[in-house]
């Protein structure tokens, strides 16, 4: 199976959020909302992640971290900004240590509004991200054909 679009892995990073959105992102992964039914797995490793979920505004301290995580992710990748702080800076926009939304440092594809963002809208955003991911994967595939053989011929096969 080379179709990775059926199980995109998700990475969550809390930039400078108030935790409200973070616990809602986590709540999405738990039995009641269960985004795992879309084949999504939460991972802590940027190198294996396909969808980058970012919550909270960006400040000077965590901007390099956000950028580094984004750079470590392999193509194709999709960025989802969850919560109004990640979209624009939100209620903290005027604070001295806040640069603004996540799009100040990395390109954001999908914006999920709300303070805190509701699990339903987060799921909506993630499902849209999966669609976009599929599209990007197909684009990449058409440009540089992936040989299936080297995936299957790896360790443990």
């Amino acid at each position: 199976m080379a179709d990775i679009t059926r199980s995109p892995w998700l990475l969550h990073y809390d930039a400078s959020s108030c935790n409200g959105c973070d616990i809602e992102v986590l709540a999405c992964l738990t039995p009641v909302f269960d985004v795992e039914r879309f084949g999504i797995v939460n991972t802590g490793d940027p190198m294996q992640a396909d969808i980058f979920l970012i919550t909270g505004a960006v400040n000077a301290q965590n901007a390099p971290v956000v950028k580094q995580i984004y750079d470590q992710m392999s193509d194709p990748k999709v960025v989802v900004a969850v919560g109004v702080c990640a979209c624009t800076g939100g209620v903290f926009k005027e604070a001295y240590n806040v640069m603004g939304g996540a799009d100040k440092v990395i390109p954001v594809d999908i914006y999920v509004p709300g303070c805190a963002a509701r699990p339903q809208s987060i799921i909506d955003g993630v499902v849209a991200a999966v669609g976009l991911f599929k599209e990007r994967y197909m684009q990449l595939k058409n440009k540089q054909p992936l040989s299936v053989g080297h995936l299957e011929g790896g360790e443990g096969s």
């Binding site: 930039a15 400078s16 505004a57 400040n59 301290q61 965590n62 903290f92 604070a95 240590n97 806040v98």
Partner: peptide, 8 residues
Amino acid sequence: IGFVHRGL
């Protein structure tokens, strides 16, 4: 401290 510091 500083990754989540907003100066709230």
